[in-house]
Design a protein around this nucleic acid. Structure first.
Length: 776
DNA sequence: TGCCTAATGGTTTTT
DNA sequence: CCATTAGGCA
């Protein structure tokens, strides 16, 4: 038996070895899809002797591409290096660079991230004299993006509205202006990468033929999450040979809101006539109980291909339901379970906490820190979104492309160098009038030698930028960045800030430089533009290092494609999961698929949890358990012993429940009275909590309810210089991490360890208390 | 120009 | 509740 086929089942073998026409693989969760794809690539390379660059593979994340490449490498060795693998976005960006001029862009066009787009949109909104509130730039970007990803025209969008016609009309003007400005800036946003690529292949026959010739085999992963444009892209990319293999699972389509069309799976056969359809329905990942439970849930969806996963795996444990009183309580109960499992030998990195929205991570972070459980939030504050990192990149972007007005505005006066708001205002007027980039206007003005102060400042700035520009061609990225940071005065300014703040930022810049050096090691010939592009398309999943044993926390969306021994599916409440706006708009099925994805990530155990009450915008609200939990049959779900239903007073800390329909109560004393209180309240020490029943002198009486925030008398002892439990809740600073708040202290004196949530990174980390300074 | 305080409004999900 | 921003002041 061929070693490439040895470890495969019947279906997988068939998939691997049939390579002469279009194929669609309906691959259920955990059915060994990645294995099939990697072995197929290996087959193409080593048995059918495809040259690596003739194989194009599209994945959903760069991380998935990297992993796939590694696995192919294990099978066939070095040739795997030359494979064209990546996300749709990164592959398109690369191809677009090569032919940018055909579309009226330069080859170092900018790639706008969501932030850049919002900045530009804000300028547009101001320009059109629209109200920033009613026309929130971010919301406009979102609307416009969704519009395009769904393949709708602006005209259609405007007409389709019966209400708010005037709003849409004006928004449409903003969209148009946004397009104009984006063009002028030589920039593409994420959606453009798809749309312009489609233009390129549609309008330029020679380019189309070039790639059709080049790519003799095309593989697509996660087909269910591609959008209409992407399907058409594939259609044009794949030549008459039609050697394409797409893999997907309609039950796992969770990006409908971004334009993903499950229909792409159904229509695949029409786009590529003669498609062979293969099914992979044996699950190798999960216990039978998990598979059955997941099936029962997803079977409630009407719009799906009827199918059923099966497995030869053991039955395994029942799923476990955890009911909590509040989100803090939920976090506490799950942390206890994590501790127990970890004690029984399950590595933290083999477990995962999932939630519907990013905001939910907070309560878990706090509790895990309190318990000293190492963890990592995948997708929280991103490294490349930190201000100092973005500033540095903005400098480089301006050097790489002088049409980058967004970057110009960002850093022209950072550090302050006398180019204030009115200077920028004047620049922009001229720029718009003449339709030239800000930097060019600035350069012209500088040459006029007008004695005004702001013109002089501008001239100095232009000199700096031009200096870097002349330096750029022969200089390594890391070196250039260091030069820029030094001569711009950016670092110097930072050093003059208070020490601690500065150090953490400088540490981040150090890390950035390190990353640049690393980039150079991998791409010795990489240009500045290459570097900026790679950085623009990086995601948090890509950055997630699994080498440390930490409990990962992430949204279910981020969990796609991953697997864990134990999965905690949290926040299972009506309104949250399924998310409220999706229930009313009839998109519950996508929410259910999302839950299905969550369940099927698990190999051994699933814990689903929900909280009866949850704070939203600081107000407390009460929810029912998610309908999805109810869809798991009784025999498969252990409801555990329900915590005895506590009285409202016990839960909320001594307050009486609100009359029905009344304003919700004041929140339980979480933040304000520092870490400890939430604990005690949930443990049910109601007597203590009743101490000051709406007493006088409390700061904010909440209107309507007549209730007030409970305030616990502060411990008499003032925090001492010596680290100890008294530091809990205090603001501190750390050289390296910056400012933060102490969540817990273990031990006391010189050896004490403090768990701190740092503002800058929003990271929760354990550090020696001795390394902290107490802030007032 | 830059720093501080007050008010305001925001929670889906991401390439 | 939180983070971000607008607006006033030094």
């Amino acid at each position: 038996m061929d070693p490439i086929l040895e470890s495969l089942n019947e279906v997988q073998r068939e998939i691997v070895t049939s390579c002469d026409g279009p194929m669609l693989v309906l691959a259920g969760a955990g059915s060994g899809k990645t294995r099939a794809v990697t072995h197929k690539i290996a087959w193409l390379l080593s048995r059918l002797h495809y040259m690596p660059w003739r194989v194009l593979a599209m994945t959903f994340t760069n991380k998935a591409a990297g992993e796939m490449r590694e696995r192919v490498k294990k099978l066939v060795g070095l040739p795997a290096e030359g494979l064209d693998m990546g996300t749709f976005h990164s592959m398109c960006a690369r191809m677009l660079r090569r032919h940018a001029d055909l579309l009226g862009y330069t080859s170092h066009f900018l790639i706008f991230d969501a932030d850049d787009s919002a900045v530009l949109m804000r300028q547009v909104v101001d320009q059109l004299n629209l109200d920033r509130k009613r026309f929130a730039p971010k919301a406009l970007c979102g609307a416009y993006d969704s519009l395009r990803s769904h393949g709708k025209s602006v005209e259609h969008w405007v007409k389709s509205s019966r209400h708010e016609g005037e709003w849409r009309q004006k928004a449409a003007m903003a969209f148009a202006q946004y397009e104009v400005q984006k063009r002028r800036l030589d920039a593409m946003d994420f959606t453009d990468l798809m749309d312009r690529m489609l233009d390129l292949l549609t309008e330029h026959e020679d380019v189309r033929n070039l790639y059709r010739e080049r790519f003799q085999y095309v593989l697509v992963d996660e087909m269910q999450d591609t959008n209409g444009v992407q399907l058409r892209l594939l259609e044009r990319l794949v030549g008459p040979h039609m050697r394409i293999c797409a893999v997907g699972d309609d039950d796992q389509s969770i990006y409908g809101w971004r334009g993903a069309r499950v229909e792409n799976m159904l229509e695949f056969g029409q786009t590529f006539p003669g498609t062979r359809i293969m099914r992979m329905e044996q699950n190798y990942r999960s216990t039978r109980t998990i598979i059955d439970a997941a099936h029962e849930v997803i079977a409630n969806n009407r719009r799906r291909h009827a199918k059923k996963l099966w497995t030869e795996n053991q039955d395994g444990d029942e799923l476990v339901l955890v009911t909590a009183d509040s989100e803090g309580d939920e976090a506490r109960r799950l942390s206890a379970l994590v501790k127990k499992l970890s004690g029984d030998g399950t590595a933290l990195r083999k477990m995962a906490v999932f939630f519907r929205t990013n905001a939910q991570s907070r309560s878990f972070e706090e509790e895990l820190a309190r318990q000293g459980i190492p963890h990592v939030v995948v997708g929280g504050m991103r490294f490349y979104e930190r201000a100092e990192v973005k500033d540095t990149l903005a400098y480089l972007r301006l050097v790489a492309n002088e049409r980058d007005d967004v970057s110009f505005v960002r850093i022209a006066n950072k550090p302050a160098r006398g180019i204030g708001d009115n200077a920028l205002e004047k620049l922009r007027d001229v720029a718009v009038e003449k339709n030239v980039p800000l930097l060019v206007v600035a350069r012209e003005l500088a040459a006029t030698q007008t004695p005004e102060r702001w013109v002089k400042s501008l001239a100095a700035f232009v000199r700096l930028v031009d200096g870097w520009k002349s330096l750029a061609p022969g200089t390594a990225v890391a070196e250039l960045a260091q030069e820029v940071l030094k001569t711009s005065g950016y670092v110097q300014k930072m050093e003059s800030l208070d020490r601690i703040e500065a150090e953490s930022r400088l540490a981040n810049l150090d890390q950035l430089i390190t990353a640049m050096t690393e980039f150079q090691r991998i791409h010795p010939d990489g240009s500045l533009t290459d570097y900026l592009e790679q950085v623009a398309l990086i995601t948090d999943i890509d950055l997630w290092q699994e080498d440390q044993d930490r409990l990962p926390l992430m949204t279910v969306h981020a969990a796609k494609g991953l697997e864990f021994d134990v999965v905690f599916a949290t926040g299972m409440e009506e309104g949250l999961f399924p998310y409220e706006s999706h229930v009313s708009s009839g998109e519950v099925e996508e929410e259910r698929r999302l839950f299905y994805v969550a369940l099927t990530r698990a190999r051994q155990k699933v814990v689903v949890s929900w909280a009866r009450s949850r704070a939203r915008f600081g107000e407390w609200s009460f929810s029912k358990m998610s309908r999805f939990v109810g869809e798991i049959p009784d025999g498969l779900l252990s409801r555990g012993e329900l915590p005895k239903r506590r009285s409202f007073a016990e839960v909320m800390g001594g307050e009486a429940p609100p009359p029905l329909g009344a304003t919700p109560l004041a929140p339980p004393p979480r933040g304000a009275a520092a870490g400890a209180s939430a604990h005690e309240v949930a443990e049910g020490s109601a007597s203590e909590a009743a101490a000051s029943p709406g007493g006088g002198g409390t700061p904010k009486a909440r209107s309507g309810s007549g209730r007030v925030e409970r305030r616990r008398p502060r411990a008499a002892s003032e925090p001492t210089a010596l680290p100890g439990p008294s530091w809990t809740g205090k603001k501190v600073s750390h050289r390296g991490h910056g400012d933060g708040r102490v969540l817990a202290v273990v031990g006391s004196g010189a050896k004490a360890l403090a768990v701190v949530r740092f503002d800058e990174s929003s990271m929760v980390t354990t550090v020696p208390a001795a390394s902290l300074t107490l802030l007032p």
